[in-house]
Design a binder for these strands. Structure first.
Lengths: 235, 235
DNA sequence: TTTTCAGCTTGACACAAGTCATTGGATGCC
DNA sequence: GGCATCCAATGACTTGTGTCAAGCTGAAAA
């Protein structure tokens, strides 16, 4: 493993998929000069709920979860982040402390872009700030949909929906069935918004019904049509 | 009632509180020329979930609810909108159809700003687009908090929280106790994310415990500290 | 090998909260 | 007036889902 510590943005493998593909060359060079790239081990925390933000993080490689911790200490995962995505912008833009904790789901490589630079570029680059608005709108849309489902759908449907969501976010392995992320049952439950035991029980049911296959933390989606039907997503 | 049909933005009573207070004079004049102001009766729909957006709406006067309708037809209220707020920007920015329906909670006066003009101004006016990002970030933060609470808090706490939220949004009448909006029990339930009967039952409990007073659709908040304690919001 | 421990699984149980059904009040309309 | 309609309130009942507790498993350590 020889990940360069500060790879150039111009060669970044995510430069066409990330928000910065909209930035102009000049700004890209500025970011390149100021950014700091670091490696994080699985389980390591990138930033903590309650801390003050000093910049944004751009995922070069890896997978991250963003989670709130409720009053009783149980965590609620609010977003899954992948390579090419940025995180930490919400706190920066609203000028408040982080409302979520970012934890690496696997070994990850993440670039840090200082607050002032990011905000300056955002002010000067209209297409970049438009892209930022698009991202925010899209996240907001997803969040509102999740609110409706949490309020109205039973756990079983939400679990099926969550499996589909994980697939959409992180994709499948080469076999075309296995989710390419390893989550604990507790993390799945915290994504669905239910108790760990309920998540486990329903996963077993799904397995018994032939919808999925379980092997440790590996989850294979077998009967996609049935999963979609269970999630109650026909459109 | 003699509300002018197209009041000038320069004299709009909300011009210092709305997002457009950040817009420069020149842009304001353009908006003034292009906007169309309309009156809506209580219960009237301003736009429908699923429809394509042609612009943004700026509330001049009145109160609006934004709601998703779930698969089973039950509605989930995702936002309460007041004078000075804008709505419909999310669909416009992400270039998708409306994901929510906007309904007037009381007689309202609303300005419509055409899509192209709004997007153009947003592109050219950095401080306006920055303000737009701040609004989106703040809405996203609220939505994520709501997700955590829906997943983790019991209905009783969420109802207390909702009463506080309504107070924060629409304020109180002169007496300093009565919520200055009239919502049906069903609407309150759809805001909390619960069944109408549950909301009614818990409101009765709150009343019995001396926290609130009920008189038809009027809700008076009496024991604020106790409501806050019930909502489990200490910070 | 055995020990240890964290995470997974299952069962038993309780209860919060949803659904269904009925009644009581308003309010508006003919 | 009476009738219809909508909403609020309450009771009775059911059930989904959380909690507690007890095994189980597999991996890592000793």
């Amino acid at each position: 493993m020889s990940i360069p510590l500060n790879p150039s943005c111009q060669n970044c493998k995510d430069r066409f998929s990330s928000i910065f593909c909209k930035a102009d060359q000049n700004n890209l060079e500025q970011i390149d000069a100021a950014k700091v790239c670091s490696s994080y081990k699985k389980g390591q925390v990138i930033f903590h709920e309650g801390a003050y933000p000093f910049g944004v993080y751009c995922i070069n490689d890896g997978k991250i979860k963003l989670s709130h911790s409720g009053d009783d200490g149980r965590e609620q995962i609010v977003r899954l982040v992948k390579a090419g995505d940025i995180m930490g912008y919400k706190a920066l833009l609203s000028n408040e402390r982080y409302t979520a904790t970012a934890t690496a789901l696997e070994d990850s490589s993440i670039c840090f872009i200082p607050k002032d630079l990011f905000l300056n570029i955002l002010q000067s680059d209209a297409s970049l700030s438009f892209e930022m608005m698009r991202i925010l709108s899209s996240e907001l849309r997803k969040a509102e949909l999740k609110i409706t489902h949490l309020a109205q759908k039973p756990v079983r449907e939400r679990l099926a929906e969550t499996l589909l969501f994980i697939k959409e976010t992180y994709g499948l392995e080469e076999d075309g069935h296995t989710l390419s992320v390893r989550l604990s049952r507790e993390e799945i439950a915290n994504l669905v918004g239910t108790a760990t035991e309920s998540a486990i029980r329903l996963l077993s049911e799904f397995k018994k019904d032939g919808m999925i296959e379980l092997e440790g933390k590996k989850i294979r989606l077998l009967d996609m049509p049935e999963i979609i039907r269970t999630a109650n997503l026909h459109d």
